[in-house]
Amino acid sequence: MSNGERRLAGLPLRSVPANAITAAALCFGLTGVRFAIAGNWPMAMACIIGAGVLDGLDGRVARMLKGESRFGAELDSLSDAISFGVSPALIVYLWALKDVPRIGWFFALGYAVCCALRLARFNAQIDIKDQPHKSAGFLTGVPAPAGAGLMFVPLYIWDVTGEPLARAPWIVAPWTLLVALLMISNFATFSWSSLRLRRDLRLPAILLVGIACAMLISEPWATLLAISALYLLMIPFSMSSYAKIKRRRAMTGNATELPGDE
């Protein structure tokens, strides 16, 4: 192989920062399992949330540096499958579902598999131009990072209230199944590009985000519980919003694409 061919086959320097962030997210996800084994549930959850933050940054850094690559896309999917599929499943299993090991393991396994199926569906459709949800700025189903956050809702409740029922396998197992099904569903869910704010609401929105960040620092689990509840309440509205766009397109025959991002 010539020097020129070797340079072409290598990873461009501008793509290294984004891929390093993705690798860091993977490390965060796996470290969450380590804390779960030690019984440190707040740190286990914090690692998964940290992985979610990093996952939101890597793609933006790649676009900013023009360092998108097929290698980065594959690494991102593998990182997501582990950080938001395998790790949350193991954490919740060790926290509550191990009390019914035979049945509990199947629920945890089902969640991890559904997360992998969701990511595989996204990868399989990444080059398909005709994607109605994406062209309208919506996502298909609950994204993997949000699914991991929703998976921990019983843990949030238990940490905030100390209620032992929140840890009961007969409550945690059905909840795990529900989140798994939401991830592989065909529901249209809001993405950043589908959210539109009127001009008079933009300053209050900035204030609200600032307050939410302060609350995340002072009362992280109560705040994440509130955010999870708000996200679930938004799903019917996102479906209704997409249905309106779909009807408008059917009437006008307008297939103008809007920027969408999975």
Rank of each mutant, 00 (worst) to 15 (best):
V92G: 03
W158K: 11
W221L: 07
L195W: 04
D130L: 11
R248S: 14
L178A: 12
G85W: 11
G56F: 01
M251G: 08
A180V: 07
M64V: 13
A226T: 00
K134L: 12
G110V: 09
M251T: 01
I245R: 15
M45V: 10
G260K: 06
M43R: 00
P42V: 02
G137Q: 03
G210S: 15
Q131Y: 08
G85V: 00
A148M: 13
I91N: 01
A38N: 07
I235P: 10
V172N: 10
G72F: 06
L165W: 15
A112M: 03
I82W: 08
G67H: 08
Q125Y: 14
F122D: 04
L233D: 07
M183P: 08
S240F: 07
G50V: 02
R34D: 05
A44I: 02
D99V: 13
I128F: 12
A214G: 14
G210Q: 06
G210Y: 04
P259C: 14
P164A: 05
K98A: 05
K134G: 12
C213R: 08
L181Q: 11
I82A: 11
C213Y: 06
L109T: 08
A62T: 00
N40R: 05
I184V: 11
I227A: 10
I48W: 01
L182A: 13
D159R: 11
P101K: 09
N19T: 10
L203A: 12
S241W: 00
G67M: 06
A44L: 01
A148N: 01
S83R: 11
W95H: 07
P259D: 15
Y111R: 03
L155K: 05
L78C: 03
G10P: 06
T176K: 05
L182E: 09
I128T: 08
Y111D: 04
C27D: 10
G162N: 05
M151S: 14
S191Q: 04
E74L: 15
G104P: 01
R70W: 10
G56V: 04
A226Q: 01
I157M: 02
P169L: 01
T140G: 05
A96Y: 12
G141W: 08
A112D: 02
A81Q: 14
Y111N: 02
S194T: 06
V53N: 00
T223H: 09
K134H: 15
A188L: 10
E257D: 15
D127F: 13
P164V: 11
V16T: 09
V33T: 04
F190E: 06
P259R: 11
G39H: 12
T252R: 01
A25S: 15
G253V: 04
V153G: 04
L181A: 06
V142Y: 04
I103R: 07
L75Y: 09
R202F: 13
F107A: 01
C27L: 14
S69V: 12
T176Q: 01
A38Y: 07
S240V: 08
A20P: 13
V172Y: 06
P204H: 14
